[in-house]
Amino acid sequence: MADHFIQGSFAFTCSIAEAALIEEAWQLAADLMGDFEPAPVSDDLLAVFPPTIGDKPLSGFIAIFDDANFPDFGAEIRVENSIEDPKTCTVAIFGATDFQPWPIAGLIQRCCQLSLTVAPVGFDWSFTCTKPYLDSFGGGWCAVFPDRIEIEFTREALSKALNGDIS
Rank of each mutant, 00 (worst) to 15 (best):
P50Q: 03
P103F: 07
I93K: 01
S9E: 09
P103D: 06
A92L: 02
F61L: 07
D72W: 13
D35C: 09
E150C: 12
G74D: 06
I6K: 07
A161G: 05
I6T: 15
I6Y: 11
W26N: 10
Q27S: 12
W102G: 02
D35R: 14
V121Y: 02
A157W: 13
A25P: 08
F94R: 02
W141G: 14
N163P: 00
A119I: 00
E23D: 15
A11T: 01
F123K: 00
E152T: 15
L32M: 10
L58N: 08
P120D: 08
G54M: 05
A30W: 13
V79W: 10
G95D: 07
K56H: 12
W141N: 11
P103Y: 08
Y133D: 10
R78K: 13
D85L: 08
G74P: 06
D66K: 10
T128S: 13
E18R: 05
G138K: 01
D3V: 04
P51Q: 01
F12A: 00
S9N: 08
S82R: 08
F153C: 02
A30F: 13
S59M: 04
G60L: 01
F94K: 00
F36V: 01
C89D: 05
F153A: 05
P40D: 15
K160E: 14
P132M: 04
D3M: 06
F36L: 12
A17I: 04
F94L: 00
A30T: 14
R110A: 15
S126T: 12
I64A: 06
F12N: 03
T130Y: 06
F61Y: 13
Q113M: 11
D72G: 11
T90E: 14
I83D: 15
E84M: 13
V41C: 10
E18S: 02
S15P: 02
E84Q: 14
E76Y: 14
D67L: 06
F145P: 01
G95Y: 08
E23K: 15
V121A: 02
D135K: 04
G139S: 01
L58S: 04
E37C: 05
T52C: 06
D43C: 03
S115A: 14
A11V: 00
L107V: 03
R155N: 06
I16L: 12
G122L: 01
D124R: 04
D124M: 02
D43R: 15
F61V: 05
A143F: 11
E76D: 15
A19S: 15
Q7A: 12
A75H: 04
F145L: 13
L45Y: 12
I64D: 03
V118A: 13
S59C: 01
L107H: 07
K87M: 10
H4R: 08
I166P: 01
F137E: 03
E80G: 01
I93F: 06
P51A: 12
G138L: 00
E80W: 02
G122T: 11
G164P: 05
A119C: 06
A39C: 09
I104L: 04
I64L: 09
F65Q: 01
I104D: 00
D85P: 08
S159P: 00
M1I: 07
I149G: 12
E80I: 14
I83C: 04
I22G: 05
S42P: 07
L107K: 04
P101V: 04
L28F: 10
P120W: 05
K131D: 10
L162W: 08
R148L: 13
I108F: 02
S9F: 03
